[in-house]
Every structure is written in C-alpha cells, then in structure tokens.
C-alpha cells in the first residue's frame, strides 16, 4: 500500500464533511412499463459509507444506475455534489463505478494496467495518449489496491477477487469523490470479502471517499457500513446499521425474521424474483 500523496483526490478536492454528496429526491423509475422504484428519497452525506440493501427484485441495481445517470427517473431527480444537471467529461468521473460482474472474457486482449487506464480517459488530451504522469497514477492506484505485482498480466487471467480490485483501481484513478459499487463481494469467499471491505474502509478514510454499495448480503454490509438504506420498490428504512437490522421495517421488507447471532435468517413467506 502506498501513502495518500499520490492520489488526486486530495484534501482540497474533498467535499466538506456533512455536505450532501448524493441527494435522491422523490425518485420513481419504470422499467419496461413496470414500476420498479416509487418515491425514493434520501441523502448521503460526504465521507459516509452507505449500504443499500433489499430483497431480490427490490430495485437496488436500478436505483444505483439511476444515481449514475444510466437510467432516467420517471419522476423526481438525483443531485450529485449539489447539482442535478448532466455531468460531462472529467466531472462525470468524480463518480467511480464498480459494476456487478460475473466474469471477464479470459481472452480480453488488455493488461490490468490498460484496463485501469480506461478510468483515466477523461483526463487524457484530445489525442487520447496517456502521458508518463497518467501511467504513474495508474501504477500508484494499483499499488493502493494491492495488486501492483499483477499490472502486466492480462485482466482475464486474474482471479475474481483480483479483478474486483482492478475494477476498483479503475474507478478511483481519476478525481473520484463518490464510489458506487454493485454487489462488490459476490462470488468472493469470506476472507476475500473481509479483505475487500477492509480495503474499502481504508480508501474511505485515506481518500475522503463517499461510498454507496449495493449488496444482497445484509449481514456482511451491516457490519461494514456507516448507514443502511433498505428498499423494496419503495423506502423501508434509513438509519444506522444496528437500528436498521433490528427494525420491524426490515423484517417487513424481506418478509422474514433475522437471527444475527446465528448469522441466519428464517424465511416466513414469499421469496422474490430477479433483481433489477
């Protein structure tokens, strides 16, 4: 791990503590004519790690994509860093995105360095050729996420956990202030999941990042996040993880009882369809 001096996201670039980084205002989203999100409203303050949870089909990924500007809300709007207009070029990359990913084509013809450099395209000149400083930024970020030794390997040859770290480096190697992750630990074993969350917490502290992470794993996220938001088509509860996991609202959202001491949940009724 390297020190924070190499990171562009320096103190001057950080939003002041307490200011709202993500403002979701009465957002309603339809997908293929079906209402997926209804009247979602919440704020994410600067520097906070927020976990977005809910059962399958709750609309977690849809909400994440709406925050990223990939889906237009039917009603309501999203404010990022106090502005609701479209973000362009370098400004667009103030938000880093680590998508849910099943597998990268093992023959994709690019090295880890090349893939991470994709995250810096907004910072390159009109000819699009990386300069020495850009490569240094990429190498430093690979060092920060702990896969500097894999930089020359092809991206498809890395393990799932290593690929997740490469995507994290890609998401962070521009002037990133908000990090959005969709199921970042899916497919990872428990130690790898713990390591990944530890890395996120360290990046949050070192870079002053605001983090919004979606996970189906309520138990794991409750142990890591500063706040939890539970949705199931509409808002169920938003608060500190301890209050949320012991609330009636979360049992209602999941239609089940949780036994956190045993790390188990008992289904009362209903399952859920595919996530959106």
């Amino acid at each position: 791990m390297s020190d924070g001096s190499i990171i562009e996201t320096d103190a001057a670039n950080r939003p002041a503590p307490g200011t709202t980084v993500v403002g979701v205002r009465n957002v309603c989203v339809d997908v293929a004519g079906r209402s997926v999100l209804r009247d979602i409203t919440f704020d994410v303050p600067a520097g906070q790690f927020v976990g977005l949870v809910g059962p399958n089909g709750a609309g977690k990924t849809t909400l994440l994509k709406t925050i990223l500007g990939l889906i237009e809300p039917k009603f309501g709007h999203i404010e990022l860093f106090g502005s609701s207009g479209p973000r362009r070029g370098r400004e667009a990359h103030s938000v880093g995105y680590v998508p849910q990913r099943h597998a990268i084509d093992r023959n994709f013809p690019a090295t880890v360095r090349d893939v991470v450099m994709m995250g810096r395209l907004c910072c390159l000149g009109p000819i699009g050729r990386p300069r020495r400083a850009d490569w240094k930024q990429v190498d430093d970020m690979l060092d920060t996420v702990g896969i500097a030794d894999l930089r020359a390997r092809n991206i498809g040859q890395l393990s799932g956990g290593e690929q997740r770290r490469a995507m994290l480096a890609q998401a962070l190697c521009a002037s990133t202030r908000l990090l959005v992750l969709d199921e970042p630990t899916i497919g990872l074993d428990l130690p790898a999941e713990h390591d990944f969350y530890s890395l996120l917490r360290q990046l949050q502290a070192d870079l002053g990042l605001t983090i919004v992470a979606v996970s189906h794993d309520l138990v794991a996220l409750a142990g890591e996040a500063d706040a939890l938001i539970c949705i199931n088509g509409h808002m169920h509860i938003h608060g500190n993880p301890d209050d949320v996991v012991h609330s009636h609202a979360i049992r209602e959202a999941y239609s089940c009882e949780f036994n956190f001491l045993a790390g188990e949940l008992a289904l009362h009724e209903g399952g859920g369809d595919h996530d959106h």
């Binding site: 990939l70 973000r87 667009a92 995105y97 998508p99 994709m118 995250g119 395209l121 907004c122 890609q170």
Partner: peptide, 8 residues
Amino acid sequence: EVARAYGR
C-alpha cells in the same frame, strides 16, 4: 455501461 457512466 461503465464507459457510459463515465460520460464517454
């Protein structure tokens, strides 16, 4: 999708 999210 990521390229789109980054405004490319």
